[in-house]
């Protein structure tokens, strides 16, 4: 091969090679542009999915919180239903007293309680049921004496959490004292002393139970008296 022919061939081959490199660069450039577009789409889609995920998580948290609230309300309603059912399900005095004790122990959460009835002739409270306390010590309380006597006198309940400061005449470890009322007349009192160790304090439902006990226990005890009088007359 002549020298000029060889040089021409090298020049042609070089041109063809450069052209192929330019074509390849253009092809790759196009691919990069397409990939960049695709990447941008992906980023946008990911952002959208993340947003949706966040929204779903927020909604899910809300539902979980709502579920807890509803379940708590269900438990509270169950507490009130059970208490009411137990108090009004019998005409036997001992069973009503036992029901009050069970409600305080199992639903409110105290194993130290006492139930007194007003003895009008003696102007005193007379113990009719108790659990976890020295019954002899609390067998009779003059109306107006101490916090329990005052509750019987005034008809206003005492709850330690509601008191702005601890009254001086409050009986030791008394957590709540609930007047049992028929219409507006106090016919008895329930005293709740120490709460169970695992119960840190009174909850909203406990106050509802106090109200329920205040009215339903009074009428339940009154009904048992009426029933026993009626039974005596029938004999």
């Amino acid at each position: 091969m002549k020298r000029t022919e060889f040089l021409d061939k090298v020049a042609n081959d070089t041109r063809a090679y450069v052209q192929s490199l330019i074509d390849e660069t253009q092809r790759l450039g196009k691919m990069v542009a397409e990939l960049e577009i695709e990447r941008d789409h992906r980023v946008a889609r990911e952002a959208m999915l993340q947003e949706r995920l966040d929204a779903i998580e927020t909604e899910s948290r809300k539902y979980a919180e709502r579920y807890v609230e509803v379940e708590q309300q269900n438990t509270n309603l169950a507490n009130l239903y059970v208490a009411s059912y137990q108090l009004n399900g019998t005409l036997d005095r001992e069973r009503v007293i036992a029901a009050v004790q069970e409600i305080v122990i199992n639903l409110i959460g105290s194993e130290e309680l006492a139930i007194w009835e007003v003895e009008e002739e003696l102007n005193a409270l007379s113990l009719i049921g108790s659990f976890g306390i020295d019954a002899d010590q609390w067998s009779a309380i003059p109306i107006g004496s101490g916090m329990i006597g005052k509750v019987a006198e005034t008809g206003s309940r005492f709850v330690v959490d509601e008191a702005l400061f601890a009254p001086e005449d409050r009986e030791e470890s008394l957590t709540a004292c609930i007047p049992l009322k028929l219409d507006d007349k106090v016919v008895g009192v329930i005293g709740i002393f120490r709460l169970l160790q695992q119960k840190p304090g009174l909850e909203d439902v406990d106050y509802e139970l106090f109200d329920l006990l205040g009215s339903h226990a009074a009428s339940a005890l009154f009904c048992t008296s009426l029933h026993s009088r009626w039974a005596e007359q029938m004999q």
Binding site: V68, E71, Q72, N74, T75, A78, N79, I105, N106, L107, I108, G109, L196, Q198, K199
Partner: peptide
């Protein structure tokens, strides 16, 4: 579980 029973 301890009493008073918590439903949840």
């Amino acid at each position: 579980v301890t009493k008073p029973i918590n439903g949840l």
